[in-house]
Design a protein around this nucleic acid. Structure first.
Length: 458
RNA sequence: GUGGCUGUAGCUUAGCCCGGCUUAAAGCGCCAGGUUGUGGCCCUGGAGAACGGCGGUUCAAAUCCGCUCAGCCACCCCA
């Protein structure tokens, strides 16, 4: 990297501008980069075994796609989309989420002609222009999974099971499912109406935020942490009471299947997702044992409410209307997205243990003659599956060995003038310090045997 | 978009309240030497910040003031 030009001591010159990553966007490097990659392959392996096909989508989509699917009035659409104009004047948006894009791809590529049901997943960055804070970025990464063509409640359960197993497989501690149903187009409207009516009657006691929520987003009233508002909530109507028969049956069955599958969950009657396209089952995944309730039966919901809600690292639900809304055939669907940044955050400690790299060897060269052999040797080691570290640009033996130590190499291979003449290389065991001279043509053989042994004794 | 806190070498921080012995300090990390062919410990030395940026007050600012940018936290919302 080029160092910054320092302004002369005399001080007059302008200092060179230091560029920073745009607000809310960050570099992923070191161990986190490994973890990102790791999560991607864990997700890929799980996706494969559960029958999800990988698809890759454009980062930009027609702005309208998100307006129609996510919905006008949601924060995502109203204030968080990055919109760009093409030279032809079209409005495109950096995807704020993946579902809309996958549905668009499904329709555009005639995926309804594939054997049903169809499962697809993708992985990549998404963008929302909101204010960054812990676990929240303007560019964030998601792994997204969608299941099309099954309206049976067992599909909901299967998807949730998949989400849980994948998260646990990656090493998220204490995965908890929070689940709720928001009904269908009809019962949801009824519920909203009832809720509004109830709160309007109490509006005088509400906090100022809630007074506003009553108008803008009544479902959010249930979220308020204010003491009096929490009291008021106790008697508020619950979604479940307003479900139509079909929706209530559906939900009951989903829960039943989860019970059968031994997937634990918290019934969260106040869970409401912020995207318009959901219906019936909605769920979120959180980590940690800060439970919001003792059990589904008691209504002692607010007791022991943790000072800070754990951030959810994944969420999803059913969206049976979306396909048709976007011009496709009526197709039921369930899906969810995982927040990669947040998952890496949560699994960092647990997962890092998995990164014990296998033994490697460090190639040390002294003198030009030795250096000339180095490239050839490196390539030979590599083709035989032996990981080699080296710094050919360095002269000092001492420094090279120090690096071998830092790389935790099992062996150092030392080649100097003498070794070149003898056609040999010194094999130094970095743990014991014992060295021996090995003829070049015996090196691979000897090394393979030694490494095998090391592997056993580890 | 709103409010609170923060911003000193790659990292963690001291100094800032009470402006001037600060040529801005320390630990970790980095590089080199102590062994002219040998690591981990130790010792010595070196490189590295002009104090987030811009402007103001002052004889004098890392230290006071304003603006701005960024980070964190909260609201909102969400992955």
């Amino acid at each position: 990297m080029e160092p910054l030009k320092k302004s002369a001591r005399t001080g007059k010159e302008k200092q060179q501008k230091i560029f920073q990553a745009p607000k809310g966007m960050h570099d992923i490097l070191g161990q986190d980069a490994l973890l990102f990659d790791d999560l991607r392959s864990v997700a890929g392996a799980f996706a494969d075994s559960y029958g999800y096909q990988y698809i890759e989508l454009p980062v930009l989509e027609d702005r309208e796609l998100f307006v129609r699917s996510v919905g006008v009035g949601t924060d995502i659409v109203d204030k968080e989309m990055y919109v760009v104009r093409t030279q032809g004047g079209d409005a495109l948006a950096l995807r704020p989420e993946f579902t809309a894009g996958i549905v668009r791809a499904y329709i555009q590529n005639g995926m309804q002609n594939l054997p049903q049901p169809v499962k697809a997943w993708t992985f990549g960055p998404a963008f929302r222009h909101d204010n960054p804070q812990a676990g929240r970025y303007r560019q964030f990464w998601q792994a997204d999974f969608e299941f099309f063509g099954a309206d049976h409640p067992i599909a909901d359960a299967e998807v949730i099971q998949f989400a849980v197993k994948l998260s646990e497989g990656f090493g998220i501690p204490d995965v908890c499912v929070y689940i709720n149903t928001i009904g269908c187009a009809e019962c949801r409207g009824q519920y909203r109406k009832a809720l509004k009516a109830y709160y309007r009657s109490k509006s005088r006691k509400l906090c100022s935020d809630c007074k506003r929520r009553l108008k803008t987003n009544p479902l959010r009233l249930l979220d308020c942490k204010n003491e009096t508002c929490v009291m008021i909530r106790k008697n508020a109507p619950e979604t479940l009471e307003y479900l139509c028969k079909d929706c209530s049956d559906h939900f009951r069955k989903v829960l039943g299947f989860l019970d059968d599958a031994k997937i634990g969950y918290f019934l969260d009657p106040y869970l409401v997702r912020g995207l318009d396209y959901y219906n019936r089952t909605v769920f979120e995944l959180k980590s940690g044992n800060q439970r919001r309730q003792e059990s589904a039966e008691t209504d002692g919901f607010e007791q022991n409410a943790p000072a800070r809600e754990p951030l959810s690292f994944g969420g999803g639900g059913r969206y049976d209307y979306l396909m048709k809304l976007l011009g496709g055939q009526d197709t039921p669907a369930v899906g969810f997205a995982l927040g990669v940044d947040r998952m890496v955050d949560l699994a960092r400690e647990e997962r890092a243990k998995a990164f014990k790299t296998g033994p490697n060897v460090y190639l040390v060269q002294i003198g030009d003659a030795a250096r000339m052999q180095a490239l050839r040797l490196i390539e030979e080691l590599r083709t035989h599956g032996i990981a080699a570290r080296f710094d050919l640009s360095r002269d000092s033996l001492k420094a090279q060995l120090r690096n071998a130590d830092r790389e935790q190499s099992a062996y150092a291979l030392i080649i100097g003038q003498k070794e070149v003449l003898d056609n040999a290389v010194i094999l130094r065991d970095m743990q014991t310090g014992i060295q021996e001279s090995v003829l070049m043509h015996k090196l691979l053989e000897t090394l393979a045997a030694r490494l095998k042994q090391k592997h056993k004794t580890r």
